[in-house]
Amino acid sequence: MTSNAAAQVAPTQSIPAIGTEYGGGTVTGIVSENGQQYLVITAGKAHELRGELGTYGQDVEGAHSYTDGRANTEALAAAGSELAQKVLALEIGGFSDWAIPARDQQELQYRHLKPTARQNYAGYRDGDNPSSVPPGYPYTEDLPAKTDVSAFQDNGAEAFAEEWYWSSTQSSADTASSLGFSDGLQLNSDKFLEARVRPVRSELIQ
């Protein structure tokens, strides 16, 4: 996660718990990349954006990471994605290193901040997250359950909409990974479709 590692560091002795307000947003979980761990922080609902992810048929080099949303977002922005450019322009809580979450960062948003008690889609390997700490296993119909973080519960001030959200992980020249917050279904969606984005930032844990 080379784009973020040098900017901010979260000391191991004081890692804030999931659901804690920290670093310009809410702590969402931890991902591991290349032997290092990164705290994932989700921006507030007021900073959600909506739009097309990119150009259908354009394979963007550098936008295939499952863990480094910042690198993906920078690559997408350089390739002309207006949505990615808007996210890179955000400054929230004094931080300017926001990104469209990579696939495994985004999965933590649903796993830990799921807005409703609705059953999860559990048809294949939705929720499988080998990058998370601890590793995340595929969803069952009942797990994850509705979040106990009150602000993110349905009708809460920070709740995710029961709609589709983009990740920044490109699956092919035509598609990128997306997640439906109504039931946790993960799909590769055409990049010209409009969906929401809830930005994240990362801090290296030392």
Rank of each mutant, 00 (worst) to 15 (best):
S96K: 15
S96F: 01
D97W: 01
D97Q: 02
A99F: 05
I100F: 03
P101T: 00
P101D: 11
P101I: 03
R103C: 10
R103K: 07
D104H: 08
D104Q: 13
Q105W: 09
E107R: 07
L108K: 04
Q109L: 14
Q109T: 09
Q109W: 05
Y110C: 01
Y110A: 02
Y110Q: 03
R111Y: 03
R111Q: 11
R111H: 10
H112M: 02
L113E: 13
L113V: 05
L113M: 13
K114Y: 08
K114I: 09
P115D: 07
P115C: 07
T116L: 08
A117V: 02
A117S: 15
A117M: 09
A117D: 15
R118P: 02
Q119S: 13
N120D: 04
N120E: 08
Y121P: 01
Y121V: 00
G123F: 06
G123S: 11
G123H: 11
Y124K: 05
R125G: 00
D128F: 13
D128K: 10
N129R: 02
N129F: 00
P130G: 07
S131L: 07
S132C: 02
S132M: 02
V133T: 09
V133D: 15
V133L: 11
P134C: 04
P135G: 10
P135R: 13
P135W: 05
G136E: 15
G136P: 12
